[in-house]
Design a protein around this nucleic acid. Structure first.
Lengths: 144, 144
DNA sequence: TTGCGTGCAAAGGTTTTGCATGGCA
DNA sequence: TGCCATGCAAAACCTTTGCACGCAA
């Protein structure tokens, strides 16, 4: 992607406009279709792939069935390195998790275990306060 | 699966024999092929699906490309609640992470943030010691 | 005998790839 | 003008489903 193209900008713009939300290929495709400008699926995949490699966008995979979802990482306003994600399997909410303990823990992992965690890729799954309360601990339903 | 069948037992036996390791559909298929008894893919999926629903086996999805991997949960001898997974994005290895700090951290998350983490679904992404060392390249080499 | 489990193949879905064309620099 | 990006369609992949047959109870 050495060249700056209309499609590339459109895709990035759309990702920025959805910062904090999660979108999948279908969402993006549909958005462009609604706007009258249809962008090929392959192009979307190719650009998203690059954005993910560049650390501009995060890719979250929750299931083999269904498509991956992507999220724009607002690297400017938020120190992404200290920012982890927690996804509630109950209600489907994806929550930003900013917490000193996280960093301490990640430092421990790196120093004692040699594991260098990538915040952009790592998602914690579990139940949020609301869902844990309403649900107890039994099996959860797909809330997505 | 109301009936007890040879295939069902074979699949469960194999899962038990690989306790602590991660296998995918292909591994299972190949194992049976080597043993002379070939089991249909659909059958493997169907049984694994049931085992996952029953909580006997965990299913980990790390990427949309590549197949999901499964792990027998030795609920008897191993406190699965204390067992997390770390996936190296460099070499693709999936590593068991057993560490007291993890538990402390998870407890903190639950008590201070109300997040109850599900160990079976949560996978940490990053670089393992080997890959972090040999870093600098975005390429992946086979580390298995 | 009843009806579930099996296995094959086809279908279903997402993602990737090949190739000719169009657009950026 | 020289390449890169695009877009279409086909391929590649994993997973699920339909259906006839075999096997467990």
């Amino acid at each position: 992607m050495a060249y700056k193209t209309k499609q590339g900008s459109d895709i990035l713009d759309y990702m920025i406009s959805t910062a904090g939300k999660h979108v999948n290929i279908n969402d993006i495709s549909e958005h462009f279709r609604k706007c009258g400008k249809s962008v090929g699926t392959a192009t979307i995949y190719r650009h998203l792939d690059k954005l993910v490699r560049d650390g501009v966008v995060a890719k979250y995979v929750t299931d083999n069935t269904g498509s991956a979802c992507y999220e724009y990482l607002d690297v400017g306003s938020c120190r992404k390195a200290d920012c982890y994600h927690f996804k509630c399997v109950g209600c489907g909410k994806l929550i930003h998790l900013e917490c000193h303990e996280v960093n301490n823990f990640m430092t421990h992992l790196e120093q004692s275990h040699g594991f260098k965690i990538d915040p952009v890729r790592t998602v914690f799954y579990g139940s949020c306060a609301d869902c844990a309360e309403a649900d107890g601990d039994t099996e959860q339903k797909e809330g997505n």
